[in-house]
Computed example of a mutant assay.
Amino acid sequence: MGRIICAGLGPGDPDLMSRRADRAVRGATDIAYFRKKGRYGQARRIVEGMLADDVVEHAMEYPVTTEIPFNSPDYNRRLAEFYDQWASRLITLSQGRDVVVLCEGDPFFYGSFMHLYTRLRGQIEIEVIPGITGMTGCWTAMGEPITWGDDVMTVLMGSMGEDALAQRMVACDALVVMKTGRNLPKVKRALARAGRLDEAWLVERGTMPDQRIARLAEVEEHDCPYFAIVLVHGHGRRPEIAQAAQ
């Protein structure tokens, strides 16, 4: 029986992968990765040029992404079936060899692999290789610390309701909003209600060659990139320290 090895690939730049993840990817005989049907897949793109010539690829194509509401019964049912089927298939594929599953960012931080992990755990040996999170790559790309001193950082999902978003945005110091995409107009409205829109930045494809950094208030309503994160930087005790230094 082989193993399932989930390699956290980091935020997008292959140079930011760990040495362990790099070894796993380059030595893989079988790799599996998530992607939207008809797309190349972000995880697959990150490892371009790193794979062995004879590697066998297994594209795990989501049955649904943004076509129907994520909280609908049909969405949940179809995704559950998808993860059930692929967990079973990965066990079959791992007979006598390891299978490397690619995961952007860190596998245990909102990664799709978590849904496979809970199904595979106890049935097969699993190794999870942590990775730099996408949000870490984004705030580093901006060249500005996300937290200072005793700041409390809050991570929110753009898929939350607008009222809940606005309420939490008021109470936090530093802020990260993930799962933006078509939720971006709602996120902007919530930030405006919280009085924080002017502090917000949109970072698209952070650390990648085509990264974009823009003030969220200046982003058009129709401009809703999928691989993007919203950041609001904290200030903590920075002013006090700076004043003491003077």
Rank of each mutant, 00 (worst) to 15 (best):
R3N: 06
C6W: 05
G10T: 07
P11Y: 08
P14D: 08
L16M: 14
R20S: 12
V25A: 09
A28I: 01
I31A: 13
Y33V: 06
Y33L: 00
Y33S: 04
I46L: 15
E48I: 08
E48Y: 08
A52E: 11
D54M: 02
V56S: 14
E57N: 12
Y62G: 05
Y62H: 14
T65I: 11
T66N: 14
E67H: 03
E67L: 05
I68M: 11
F70P: 02
Y75V: 05
F82K: 04
F82T: 12
D84W: 06
W86Q: 10
S88H: 11
R89W: 04
R89I: 04
L90T: 07
I91M: 15
I91V: 15
S94T: 07
R97L: 11
R97H: 15
D98R: 08
V100Y: 05
L102K: 09
L102H: 10
C103V: 13
P107A: 15
L116W: 03
Q123D: 06
Q123M: 04
I126L: 13
G131N: 09
T133I: 06
M135G: 01
G137Q: 08
C138S: 15
C138L: 09
I146D: 03
T147W: 01
W148G: 05
W148H: 15
D151H: 06
V152F: 03
V152L: 10
M153A: 07
T154E: 11
G158C: 02
L165W: 00
M169D: 07
R182D: 14
N183H: 14
P185I: 07
K186R: 15
A190K: 00
A194K: 00
A200S: 13
A200F: 04
L202Q: 03
L202M: 14
V203H: 00
G206C: 06
P209L: 08
I213K: 06
R215C: 11
R215Y: 12
E220K: 15
D223G: 09
F227G: 08
F227Q: 05
A228R: 02
A228W: 07
V230I: 10
G234V: 05
H235V: 14
H235M: 09
A242V: 05
Q243A: 14
